[in-house]
Design a protein around this nucleic acid. Structure first.
Lengths: 107, 107
DNA sequence: ACAAGATACCTCGTCTGTCAAGGTATATTT
DNA sequence: AAATATACCTTGACAGACGAGGTATCTTGT
């Protein structure tokens, strides 16, 4: 069973930042990683992903640069900024709180 | 800190059903209960609540009737149906899965 | 007596994130 | 030569949340 987008909603940015915390990456790869890590239960659709990238960049949480692939399609890499790291900590704490609250409500 | 609506989104219906599992209730009361149970961290806004009621009724998960208050404002009560109970179990399982998945993604 | 606040219901229109559908280009496999 | 995988992107529609507004009743403080 896959996880509905309404449940994932609001976590997209945190999920992306969490990935960039480990290492710089690019859209296609991030997408694949998320699916793999969750046994295909979470899938961020491309359009969703790219709009999240725009928001994160706008907010100054990520920076972007083009990879220098000699071969194959070009890749746009993303890296997390200091501000992004701080934002991630907030997202993370929000998640912990939300988790506790929802657990209390869904007995 | 309060929980953003984007994080709560997708759980509204489950939260309402969970309440009706315990006992029949009405909008205003449900709203208060949710806030109390979560120390004011979760607040479903009225408009949100009522639109969820409409959806749940449409889906056949809840039934509604007017209370017979002799005094005070009239109350519209909601009660969960058998179908609603089954739906709740699905919502609940979805939540457990989503929780596990997001926990994996937000290290 | 009157105002303010709490209880209780509701609707309309706006906003925002998701995503289906469409597009481009390159490399590899059949 | 066609299909598949990699890799990027945009547009427009949709759905859920909610701010702002409304109605009516009862209680409390002054």
């Amino acid at each position: 069973m896959s996880i509905t987008s309404d449940i994932l909603r609001g976590h997209t940015e945190a999920i992306i930042l969490a990935h960039l915390l480990e290492q710089d990456s690019y859209g296609y790869q991030i997408n694949k990683d998320i699916m793999k890590k969750t046994d295909n239960r979470c899938e961020l659709k491309e359009a969703t992903l790219y709009s999240a990238f725009r928001r994160l960049e706008q907010a100054g949480y990520i920076r972007t640069y083009w990879g220098d692939e000699k071969v194959g399609a070009r890749r746009r890499y993303y890296s997390i900024t200091e501000e992004g790291r701080r934002a991630y900590q907030v997202y993370k704490r929000e998640w912990e709180e939300a988790k506790a609250a929802i657990d209390k409500l869904l007995k």
